[in-house]
């Protein structure tokens, strides 16, 4: 256990270590009977896919049972009437659902804004989810920047796919190994990923 910065010798370092250790500090406020659930650490991908599955099943039951009118279906709206109950295409439908609801809302915000205490969203159907607020891809033409120096450019090497600024940089690009080329491409997520 090598001291890095503050403590100079072994002894003071050990003392500091002792002082900072949180393990031995009593925590009487913790519930001693609490047991953490298994596998509670989930990454974002897992959380989102689980949420989507849950939502999809809700949607399907709504559509199939006939007991409940799908909340987003507006009378005479062909788009939402054609919602596909097929789960394979469900994700697209879900996205559309969100978009429609948002569109509806924005059209209706004139009314909502006048309501001083009206909540921003009603609790009907899927509205603002982690995935739905994600920014869409840009619709503007992408600018090219030299992959090595970052300078704005218009040239691309057809062999490697790297953008380069001038003849000198072209020479550099042509002198790169395959690994280096992929490394440069990875900087803008354009590299080839083998699976």
């Amino acid at each position: 256990m090598a001291p890095i910065t503050t403590a100079s010798n072994e002894e003071t370092h050990a003392a500091l270590l002792d002082a900072l250790d949180m393990q031995k500090v009593p925590k009487p406020f913790r519930n001693p009977h609490y047991r953490a659930p298994q596998r509670r650490n989930k990454n974002l991908k897992q959380i989102l896919s689980e949420a989507q599955r849950a939502q999809q099943s809700v949607l399907n039951t709504q559509q199939n049972s006939g007991a409940v009118t799908p909340q987003t279906t507006v009378e005479g709206d062909p788009a939402s009437a054609s919602l596909n109950p097929n789960p394979a295409q469900g994700s697209q439908d879900l996205n559309r659902l969100v978009l429609e609801k948002n569109a509806q809302q924005s059209n209706g915000t004139g009314a909502a804004a006048t309501l001083s205490v009206g909540l921003p969203t009603s609790s009907t159907g899927p509205s603002v989810t982690y995935t739905s607020i994600q920014a869409a891809p840009s619709k503007k033409p992408k600018k090219k920047y030299c992959d090595i120096t970052g300078l704005p450019t218009t040239y691309t090497d057809p062999k490697t796919g790297l953008n380069y600024y001038n003849a000198e940089m072209f020479k550099v690009v042509r002198g790169l190994s395959t690994g280096q080329i992929q490394e440069y491409l990875a900087l803008r997520n354009a590299n080839t990923v083998l699976k």
Partner: peptide, 11 residues
């Protein structure tokens, strides 16, 4: 009142 329906996230 935040218009959460219009909110957008850039990662």
């Amino acid at each position: 009142q935040p218009l959460l329906g219009q909110a957008t996230r850039l990662d």
